Computed example of a mutant assay.
Amino acid sequence: MTTVLLKGVRKDYGSFTAISHIDLDIASGELVALLGPSGCGKTTTLRMIAGLEIPTSGQICFDGKDVSEVPVQNRNVGMVFQRYALFPHMSVEKNILFGLKVRGTDRAEAEDRLEQILDVVQLQDFRHRFPAQLSGGQMQRVAIARTLITNPSVLMMDEPLANLDTKLRGEMRRFIRNLQQRLGITTIFVTHDQIEAMELADRVAVIFNGNLAQFDEPDALYKHPKSVEVADFMGATNVFAAQIKDKTATLDFGVLTFDAPSQNGTRSVMLRSEAIDLHLDEPSDAQNVFRGTIATRDFFGANITYGVSCGRETVQVTEQSRRVIDVGQDVWLTIAPERIWVIQETD
């Protein structure tokens, strides 16, 4: 298991700056997701860690040793790409063994490793099949096995599930997470999918425009974003300007009290749609009560999201679809003080 440290890493391509400044400290055995929109620099960051790109400035260290200019073949890293890149004329076991064959690994040792890795990725029954005879998930497991059999110190995955359908992506996320925890290998996973990052990672690094916006555990990232941009990217639908004073937030549609400490002044307040409770009758003993009218209703199977008009604002409220409230119905909304988050950006 290996620690990975990025310190002040920058990458320029001529006059274009792909990465402005990235600091990351990845613990041994940790799975970290690099998350961000297309073109933000997450794949460039991964390629620099792998040794496929050399940083313009800054340091990349494995276990405290600077490897910034060490070529990829000397870093002992494994890479799984979005495209499986399997050899169509080779069986599953020959595809998996390819890396060891190139390295000149002893045949007996290679066969031992093959049996172990086939068990790990659950492909024993498919060892003699060819890629054309496999499903997308099975091909991805072959690609992962081909990487793992070389015993890399760091496993890197560049959007490996992007070509799979929704159901299979969910299954492969669970497979990758269980596999990573079983092996305890330091893993860096690139994705633009927030759900994928939240489900897979121990910590998530959100990257915008070549800069690290936030590096945090999934729960903290979701509930306590450090900026409006991060909140928006993580799916927050209710972010409102408010005047903060002594743990009260004055919004356009009411005054809310909250628990977390905050600086006074103009701030952005986040109210998660699933954190708001919706009532048909006015609550008599709740905190933070405000009135509105159902303006929109969107059905998402297990959940319904209502757009509730409150003054000049529309508040999104998500609840399980055990009831259906008509558009035009007057309602009351409540939110617990501990579920209100004031985003601590400076003026």
Rank of each mutant, 00 (worst) to 15 (best):
L148Q: 14
D25L: 04
G58M: 00
E109I: 12
V154M: 00
G58I: 02
V154E: 01
A302V: 09
D112R: 12
V230G: 03
G51D: 05
R169M: 08
E229F: 11
R323K: 09
V121K: 11
T147P: 04
R297H: 07
R107Y: 04
V228P: 09
D25V: 06
A231H: 01
T314Y: 06
H89G: 14
M90C: 11
I149T: 03
Y222K: 13
K223F: 02
M270F: 10
V269R: 12
Q138N: 07
N303L: 14
A33K: 02
G51Y: 02
I340P: 10
G307N: 10
E313Y: 11
G307R: 14
T56D: 05
I304D: 00
G64E: 11
P337T: 11
T293L: 03
V204P: 13
V206R: 05
K42P: 10
N238P: 13
G8A: 10
F175P: 06
A85D: 13
I117R: 04
Q73E: 15
F87S: 05
F290N: 03
G29Y: 03
P152D: 00
K223M: 04
A27L: 06
T266M: 06
F300N: 08
D158V: 05
I26L: 08
D165W: 11
L200Q: 04
V9Q: 03
F215A: 12
K247C: 13
F240D: 00
V67A: 07
D106F: 02
A302N: 12
S20M: 08
T318S: 12
T293G: 04
H224I: 09
Q73M: 14
L333A: 05
I276L: 04
K167C: 09
I49G: 08
R312A: 08
Q124C: 09
S91R: 15
T250H: 15
L333E: 03
M1L: 01
Q124H: 12
R322Y: 15
G99S: 03
H279Q: 01
L52P: 09
E319D: 14
A236H: 14
L118E: 13
M1H: 00
I325H: 13
G51I: 03
R312P: 05
D63I: 01
E30A: 07
L161G: 03
S227C: 02
K42H: 15
